[in-house]
Amino acid sequence: MKTPMLTVDVIIRLSGDRIILIRRGRSPYRGSWAIPGGFVEYGETVEDAARREALEETGLDVEIKDLLGVYSDPRRDPRGHTVSVCFTARVVSGEPEAGSDAADIGIFHIEDIDDLELAFDHRKILEDFRSRYRE
Rank of each mutant, 00 (worst) to 15 (best):
P74Q: 10
G94T: 15
T82W: 11
V91L: 11
V70H: 06
G94R: 14
E97S: 10
F87H: 01
E95Y: 13
P96M: 10
T88H: 02
S84V: 03
S84W: 00
R76M: 08
S93Y: 09
I105L: 02
V85H: 02
F108L: 07
S84A: 15
Y71T: 01
V83D: 13
D77V: 06
C86F: 04
R79Q: 10
A89R: 00
P74E: 09
R79P: 03
A102C: 02
V83N: 04
G99R: 03
H109A: 13
R79M: 11
S72V: 05
R76C: 04
V91H: 02
G106C: 15
R90S: 05
F87E: 01
R90I: 04
G106M: 10
T88S: 11
G106Y: 15
D101F: 09
S84H: 01
T82K: 13
S84R: 02
R75T: 13
V83M: 08
V85S: 05
T88P: 05
V83E: 12
F108D: 01
P78Y: 08
R79T: 11
V83Q: 05
G94H: 14
S72E: 14
P78M: 04
G94S: 07
R90W: 11
I105Q: 02
V91F: 05
V70C: 13
I107T: 03
P74A: 04
G80K: 04
I107P: 00
A102W: 00
R79E: 11
T88M: 05
H81V: 07
V91Q: 01
V92M: 02
Y71R: 01
H109Y: 03
C86D: 03
I107M: 13
F108W: 04
S93T: 10
S84M: 03
D101Q: 13
P96G: 08
R90H: 11
H81Q: 11
D101V: 15
A89C: 14
I107E: 12
D73V: 10
I105D: 01
R75N: 05
V70M: 08
C86Q: 01
R90P: 02
S93M: 12
R76T: 04
P96D: 07
A98V: 06
V92A: 14
P96F: 05
E97F: 15
R76P: 00
S72N: 06
R90N: 13
V85N: 01
D77M: 09
A102M: 00
R75F: 07
V91N: 03
A98N: 14
F87M: 15
F108M: 10
H81L: 15
A103Q: 09
A89N: 02
T88K: 04
G94D: 15
G80I: 03
V85K: 04
F108G: 00
D101I: 08
A89L: 06
D104W: 12
R79F: 09
T88D: 05
V92R: 13
V85W: 05
F108V: 03
V92T: 05
I107C: 07
G94W: 15
P78R: 12
V92C: 15
I105W: 00
V85D: 02
V92F: 12
A89D: 00
T82N: 08
D101H: 12
A103Y: 08
V85M: 03
